[in-house]
Design a protein around this nucleic acid. Structure first.
Lengths: 253, 253
DNA sequence: AGGGCAAAGTTGGAGTACCAACCGACCCCG
DNA sequence: CGGGGTCGGTTGGTACTCCAACTTTGCCCT
């Protein structure tokens, strides 16, 4: 019989939180078996659905795992984040390919002044011309199609004085990285906030990056912080045919 | 009434795959509303559980989202992988700190011959002396405590001839990266398999990395592949007090 | 005593049913 | 014509049930 208790929190959360606490406090040490669905229903006075759900959530968090016909057990090595394996072609691979072909095509453009191709891509991607973009970097293939494009907003360093200067990447472009330059200025980068996700490309990106139909895009958003102040924010977009992502989420039951 | 069809695949997967296909093919464009539970049960001839489950899985994948009282809708920006935000102190931050203090302490050791400190840590972490470790790199703090240690198994490059040579990182150590060296040898790196996870450190790691109680470890396992052949496998371990991870999984219903 | 087999227990898939909170559209009344 | 209330549809939480596949345990028979 159904009887809904007028509670704000879902019932299954009670079970989840209690079990989680027991695991964290060591009452349920690694390897220990979790009470079965039937036992949980009796112990907590909840339905089987709630018990099952609680187990599922804990398994999704990586605290426990279930074995068919046997039971649920506490993970010996709790996975604090869900374990993800991504398997992708390296963004840098085209650089290697280009090196082989003696056909290196890497351009770094500094400040708002952009080199021809960099400016074109920036326009196609609707990066406003007036944006405080300090650096635009992109990597293109032999056939001139872009594979990676990145732009960043960062404070100027002493080396950035020459506006519009075009530098090859393997030169001072990379050696004079942000961290190095900031350190030279006495600014200590304390934190980096990074968001990685794949998504379906926007129309402008399909156009700008010459994406084939169905291709996905790897989007990396990164902000360097010095204290609370951001010193750099960069966007990196990599076209989807460069990588294939294999991810295993514990799919909810 | 329950009637189990002798099928290998779960029923809900049929619904998931059909809806996923429709979304991918544009039949259900971004913003479109997904059939409700009741409609799905009728359309696919499945129970409400299967319909609900299918919606949940699609929502977990980030293809759709549900609004209570309204319905499920196709995401305008489908998130193919669960969106993860990790917020961590950069592994390279200590380098900046050291640069400030004029106290750079980065060592690259080549081949099995290791420099004093590198060998000590390698021993403490139980990397066998006979292992084909080409490079051991570690970063230590001012107080000499290690914050990062990495070792890799990779084929020798022409520049690696001098065994036991110690090179500062910001020199040729980084410029002569694996990808570059492989390219010079005509080997093209086609794929990188990377596994990132946090875990509780092992006793040897607690010892070797001087971890405080409760600290976690960021473990990165990376293999570079040329075709099917691995050309490099590296392990990177970062002590846990360097980063704090903020993750948001779409917790299954 | 030891090996094999059956029974009991467990997970995971699936179905049905009900309720609360909520959204939206329609209709009615002022 | 506009505002408010009602009603149907929808999601999400919960309960109960059954079954298939599997593991584990313990008993029985050889």
């Amino acid at each position: 019989m159904y009887r809904h208790v007028a509670s704000s929190d879902p019932v299954y959360l009670r079970v989840v939180e209690d079990l989680r606490r027991q695991i964290r406090d060591g009452l349920l040490p690694p390897g220990a078996s979790i009470p079965s669905r039937a036992q949980l229903t009796r112990k907590y006075g909840v339905g089987e659905t709630a018990a099952r759900h609680a187990l599922r959530v804990l398994a999704a968090e990586g605290l426990i795992y279930g074995r068919v016909g046997s039971g649920h057990y506490v993970r010996d090595r709790p996975v604090l984040t869900p374990l993800h394996r991504w398997r992708h072609h390296d963004h840098h691979a085209p650089m290697a390919a280009d090196l082989q072909n003696q056909n290196r095509r890497i351009t770094c453009t500094w400040r708002v002044e952009r080199a021809e191709a960099g400016r074109a891509i920036g326009q196609r991607l609707r990066v406003p011309e007036s944006a405080p973009v300090v650096r635009t970097r992109y990597v293109i293939r032999d056939d001139n199609s872009p594979v990676q494009i990145a732009w960043s907003y960062e404070p100027m360093g002493p080396g950035d004085a020459a506006e519009g200067q075009i530098l090859p990447t393997e030169g001072s472009g990379d050696r004079q990285g942000l961290v190095t330059r900031m350190a030279a200025q006495g600014i200590k980068i304390t934190e980096i906030v990074e968001t990685v996700r794949t998504r379906i490309p926007e129309p402008t990106e399909i156009d700008a990056l010459d994406l084939v139909a169905g291709a996905h895009v790897l989007h990396v958003e990164r902000t360097h912080l010095a204290g609370d102040r951001p010193v750099e924010t960069s966007d990196i977009i990599v076209s989807g045919d460069l990588f294939s992502l294999v991810y295993s989420i514990p799919v909810p039951t």
